[in-house]
Design a protein around this nucleic acid. Structure first.
Lengths: 196, 196
DNA sequence: TAAATGTTTAACATTTTTGTCTAACAATTT
DNA sequence: AAATTGTTAGACAAAAATGTTAAACATTTA
C-alpha cells in the first residue's frame, strides 16, 4: 500500500493542540485550526472525518498525556522529595507550553460528559497517596489528608499559568517577567509543600 | 413609562451565568441558555440584542464581581491574618457556587482579547502586595515575592474546584465527599499560607 | 374599557460553521 | 509512461446557530 504521509494529519492535530492547549482559544472553528496550520479546511475532514472526531482525538491524547505525566511521579524508585522535585521541573515545563490542556479537558467533560476512561488511573492515584502517607508517617511531611498534598502541588503549578492574562494585566508584567516569575515558582512550590 | 419587568431579563442573565460559571459549559448556545432558563430563545435577542452583547455583559459582570471580591481583601482595617481568613471563607463559598467564573473570563480574553479595563485594579493589587510585604517585614510571613503569596492563595482555593470532574473521578468521590474535602481546604490553605 | 405600552411567541431570514463531492494534482508502482 | 493510489483545493450542500419581523398576548394607564 502506498502511504505517502506528508505529515499533514499530524500537523493538523498538533495545530489543534496548540490552538486549544497553548492559546486557550476554546471556541476555535475548523477554519481557525486550518488557518493556523496553513492548510485547506477540507483537509480537516479528509483526515479526521469530522470536527467532533478531531476533538475526541485531541481529548484522548490530552488525557493520555496527562496520565502519562502523572504516572511519571510514581514510577521511579527514588527518595520521595527528589521525585517531586523532578516532577515539578517536568510538569512546569509542560504546563508553560500548554497551560490550557486541563481547562480544555474539563470543558469537554462538562459539555459532553466524560467519554474517556482509563480505569487504572484510580489505582495509580491511590499508589501516590500511599507514598505521601508514608512520608507523613515518617514525619517528613506535615500530616494531612494526602489528597491535599497533590491538590496543592498541581494548584500552585498550573493555576497561575491558566490565569496568565489576568496576572499579566493586574501586575503589569510582560512576557519575560511573567515567565521568570513562573520559574521562580518551582522552588517556592517545593518549599511550600515540604515546609513542616 | 410603563416598565413591568417580569424579571425575564435578569433570569436570562443569571441563567447564562449559571451555565457558564457554575456548569462550565463554555460552548453553550443561546438555545441552550434559553432552554436552561425555560424561556423562548427570541427573548435572548429581545433583551440583549445579540449573543455577543449578552456575553459581554456576563463578562463585565464577572470581572466586576471579581474585582469587588478582590477589593474586599484589602478594604477592611483589621489584622492581616483575620482578613485573609475571612476572605478565604467568602471566596471559597463563591467559588464553590461558580467554579468556572475565572475560566470563562480567561477564555473570553483569549478569544477576543481583553475588552474590559478597570484601571484602578493594578493600584489595588499593589496595595495588597504592600500589606503582604509589611507582614513579611514584621516577620509574620515567610519572606518571598508578595505576588507568590496571593497566587498561592488563589491557586489553592480555586484550582481544585475547576478540576472537580477529574478529582471526583480519580479519587472516586461523590458530590458530598468532594464538597467536604473542599471545605477542609479552607483551614488547610490558611495553614499553608502562614506556615513559617 | 380602550388605547398605549411592554412581553412573548412562531415563522422566517441570514450568517456561520461544518460536511461532501468532484476534479486536479502528485507520487508511487508496475 | 500508464495505471494506481494518495493528497489537496474549490465549489457546493447541509446543518447549526444567530438574528429579525410581525402578530398575539398581557398589563398598565388614561
Amino acid at each position: 500500500m502506498a502511504t505517502r504521509d506528508t505529515g499533514t494529519e499530524q500537523l493538523i492535530k498538533d495545530t489543534a493542540k496548540r490552538v486549544f492547549f497553548a492559546e486557550g482559544r476554546l471556541h476555535a472553528t475548523t477554519q481557525d485550526i486550518a488557518d493556523a496550520a496553513g492548510v485547506n479546511r477540507t483537509l480537516v475532514n479528509y483526515y479526521f472525518r469530522s470536527k467532533d472526531s478531531l476533538i475526541k482525538q485531541v481529548y484522548e491524547d490530552g488525557m493520555n498525556d496527562l496520565s502519562a505525566r502523572l504516572m511519571q511521579v510514581m514510577e521511579t524508585d527514588r527518595p520521595f522529595k527528589e521525585k517531586i522535585e523532578d516532577f515539578i521541573d517536568v510538569f512546569m515545563a509542560d504546563s508553560m507550553e500548554y497551560p490550557y490542556q486541563e481547562t480544555f479537558l474539563i470543558t469537554e467533560m462538562n459539555t459532553r460528559g466524560n467519554i474517556y476512561h482509563k480505569d487504572n488511573m484510580s489505582e495509580k492515584v491511590e499508589m501516590f497517596s500511599r507514598q505521601i502517607q508514608a512520608e507523613m508517617d515518617a514525619g517528613r511531611l506535615e500530616k494531612m489528608n494526602p489528597i491535599h498534598f497533590s491538590i496543592n502541588m498541581f494548584s500552585m503549578l498550573i493555576y497561575p499559568l491558566i490565569m496568565k492574562p489576568m496576572y499579566k494585566q493586574f501586575y503589569n508584567l510582560d512576557e519575560d517577567q511573567f515567565n521568570k516569575l513562573m520559574l521562580e515558582r518551582k522552588e517556592m512550590t517545593c518549599n511550600m509543600l515540604f515546609k513542616m
